[in-house]
Design a protein around this nucleic acid. Structure first.
Lengths: 246, 246
DNA sequence: TGGATTTCATATGTCTTACATTTAATATTT
DNA sequence: AAATATTAAATGTAAGACATATGAAATCCA
């Protein structure tokens, strides 16, 4: 099972790929200890510095963790939903900002995904999900709330909606979409009037989720998407140059 | 703007976090060249080896790329949808396999997300998307096709469906969910009979997408989910020990 | 005997120096 | 003027040394 990697890549990249394959294939299992850096440098016939660079690559992907000391070493890490989410949010955020993804496209994707959760969340949401949604609505009603804080509360509201589905895989997938949009949302100025419209729809959605009416929740999300898109168009049109970017 | 990072972490991790923040915040823009390793080691007052470990961490996340030679160095990388997808698939696959995510949960998430694409794909799909779906259905009809090949074709079919929505953000998000399930799907033995049922539903879905009937496409996906869940239950129940895992 | 302390071995974290290799720009030669 | 050779700058790799953390074993002291 020798590496059939492109030999053009760096040695540290090749070694990282080799170990990564072993983890993905199951040859290395969770919490298993990798050979020490010295042993790996012998095995791969490279210096310890190169081995370390490979291990840092894997650590950056949360595939391994390292421990110092006598019984230390590198261990296969059990990727947590939290760690995976954090990475996905970083990646998604950069993806949107670096590739000139339009607000419209990102917004459409976000609400499409959220609608996917609405029926499940309607079925299974617990009281705590409802409570979070109600609480966040109250936060959003506060006068003098900054646009950033309003957006943060918006994210919290929608995360509660998604989490209500009780499916960690869904929550993980959605976190990237919802949170990655926050920088774009933060570019928007929310007038009191636009906030009122959003809050009213949040109430509609929360009511529907509480009443376990998935169709109504989906409809509320659709209306919220339309409202958000319209608001964004107004804001971006007002921006002096009216350049069509973003 | 000095680093307010936990000082307990490795120097290379701190430096990586510092540079990552600069990229995420926009202080470093795409294609901008970072200082050379020698300069960074002066700036952060660490050795070049430590700087290199930090840079390898960033390279593992596709945040930078490096180039050798006179005008070489580390450059801020424009994260491509492809690279982001590849990373997300690796992460999602490990997440499912390491956290004892049930087939049921993963399957539910996958089809919920796909249903989110169905209306959009119905509206916007091009002829090439339809063609791919039809072609893959024909592949799935081949006798003697291995279970792995059947699953791979299944993934291709569903990717065409998702891509039909014409929203790269959606495609990116969905790729993780769909492809991460492949190892789980590969555990299933597809009898000729179960394949026929799946193919029939694929035809239904392709017809609906072609006819631009989003509701029918969603219904087809719901039926396919039910069929897949039932098949999985049968397969896992048959497995000797009948242990309830997976 | 038993608990506290010391020692020790092992592993990662960091630094230093050196050299190899790649690459573009410059200088030289024909 | 074009082809070739040189050079400088940067990353890639190696080797060795030391710092530091940590668990376990050995030792010491009531």
């Amino acid at each position: 099972m020798k590496s059939n990697r492109v030999p053009s890549a760096d040695l540290s990249a090749q070694i990282a790929a080799n170990i990564r394959d072993a983890i993905v294939s199951g040859a290395l299992i969770v919490d298993e200890r990798l050979p020490s850096e010295a042993e790996l440098s012998l095995k791969f016939e490279v210096s310890r510095a190169t081995v370390r660079e490979a291990l840092k690559r894997l650590a950056a992907q949360s595939l391994i963790r390292t421990q110092r000391g006598a019984t230390g070493g590198a261990f296969v890490n059990r990727i947590s939903f939290e760690a995976a989410q954090a990475q996905q949010i970083t990646t998604s955020t950069l993806l949107l900002s670096m590739n000139d993804v339009s607000f419209e496209t990102a917004c459409e994707a976000r609400y499409a995904l959220e609608r996917a959760c609405a029926p499940l969340s309607s079925d299974r949401r617990k009281s705590n999900h409802i409570n979070v949604m109600r609480d966040e609505i109250n936060v959003q009603r506060e006068v003098g709330l900054s646009d950033e804080a309003f957006c943060a509360s918006d994210v919290a509201f929608h995360r509660a909606l998604v989490d209500g589905a009780g499916n960690p895989v869904l929550s993980y997938q959605l976190a990237g979409a919802v949170e990655a949009m926050q920088p774009l949302m933060n570019m928007i100025t929310f007038t009191a009037r636009s906030r009122d419209a959003i809050i009213a729809l949040h109430v509609t959605i929360a009511d529907a989720i509480e009443a376990q009416d998935g169709a109504a929740a989906s409809a509320g999300l659709t209306a919220l998407e339309a409202e958000t898109q319209a608001l964004a168009r107004r804001v971006f049109a007002q921006r002096s140059g009216n350049s069509a970017q973003v």
